[in-house]
Design a protein around this nucleic acid. Structure first.
Lengths: 217, 217
DNA sequence: GCGCTATATTCTGAATACAGAAACCATATT
DNA sequence: AATATGGTTTCTGTATTCAGAATATAGCGC
């Protein structure tokens, strides 16, 4: 069977650096000190730099000529463009999915929605469930390059995602949107489903502008 | 202009390696010998590897766990998915362009089409003009991430593009399609223009099936 | 002669070393 | 006191070195 294929070190590192950018351990605007970060991650600079180059190519970091890597500033304007972008990319993936395979996904997708309803108050858990739901929905798309692009683009958006944490009202609405998307899938109307999927992301962007309310309740 | 800003070496290297993949000096299936390639490019392995990591992340190369980097095989099925993908990405960029800015582009785009008509027999020059036309058409799109994705995806397709080189008949048809796209832009009907843009790419894919032998022996 | 195993070589992946640019700091000068 | 300036230190970008896996080669047994 499959032996333990040693993944290249840069893969792990890229994931860890991504996590640090998303959770703010590497905050916006921060310059990255390669030696210190390498020490923290217990690796040498070489694979770390390879990971940083990867992330820079995806837009999660920026490289300034002789000044190294930096976490780009948070930019509401950029965020407002990213949400529709991910929406359209996912919509494309959905339209290009195999309709039969999609029908097989209806039931697990339904169950996931139930799970989300049960986790209305757990912001982080809900975000995870949301991610998995979208991933599952798009798992029937055979366009590998599109899927790669989506996977590489979503972290850019996640950086803003964590900011708003819509709260239960937003969560409820999003769950309803998921239900409607799923209904269109069940009907075999992929175009309708795709439109609703875009709308789901666009609606997510709408929550960016307003002040971030602490999730107290 | 600011010329003193030394671009990182990996940028040059990535471009040179891309060129070698596209023109076949690094043929499909070829494994990349890092020391040899570094010697040929007169650089050390470190920035070369950084460039290879970049290109792998874009899908132009593949990395096998402990066997290094490889040029992925040509895959007609992949190509047939890449053309519509680039088409949809460009269509998106067009729909998101500033209508006013687009109107300002109509005249230069018209001139470029004339230049293409004059270069009907020069396959390589024509391909260049085509590239520039599309780049110009999308230059009014302000979505930086989408533009980056497009720029990173097109080389994947170029690998197949050079194979067919449709000939003057295909060229003539493509030029007509460009004219029709431009007409829709002139009318301010971006959706129509976007649809025609997708079709232009899809038609490009149609020329792939022809004279390319598969591997089965 | 053919196949298998042991050994040598090659190559990648990672660590370390080095050179030059940028940032920092302290001092001196107006 | 504020600012310019020279020197020092830090950090990046690149080169080189090292270790271990993968592949090729030669030797050995059958």
């Amino acid at each position: 069977m499959d032996q333990t294929t040693t993944a290249p070190l840069r893969r792990d590192i890229a994931e860890q650096v991504t996590a640090r950018v998303l959770d703010g351990r590497l905050p916006a605007e921060a310059r990255i000190n390669e030696v210190r970060l390498a020490a923290e991650l217990k690796v040498s600079r070489t694979p770390l730099r390879e990971a940083l180059v990867e992330l820079t190519d995806r837009g999660l970091l920026v490289a300034e000529p002789r000044r190294g890597f930096r976490v780009p500033p948070l930019n509401l304007d950029e965020a407002r463009k990213l949400y529709p972008l991910v929406g359209e990319l996912e919509a494309l993936a959905l339209r290009w999915s195999s309709p039969q395979d999609l029908l097989g996904l209806v039931e697990p997708l339904e169950r996931q929605i139930d799970a989300m309803r049960a986790a209305l108050d757990d912001g982080r858990g809900l975000a995870d469930l949301d991610d998995r739901w979208h991933a599952l929905l798009l798992s029937a798309c055979g366009n590998a390059h599109l899927m790669r692009i989506i996977a590489q683009t979503k972290p850019l958006l996640k950086r803003y995602d964590v900011l708003y944490f819509g709260g239960p009202d937003r969560a409820r609405r999003s769950i309803d949107e998921h239900r409607d998307i799923l209904a269109a899938v069940r009907d075999g109307d992929l175009n309708q489903a795709a439109r609703r999927l875009v709308q789901n992301w666009v609606n997510g962007a709408a929550y960016l502008g307003q002040d971030r309310r602490p999730s107290g309740r």
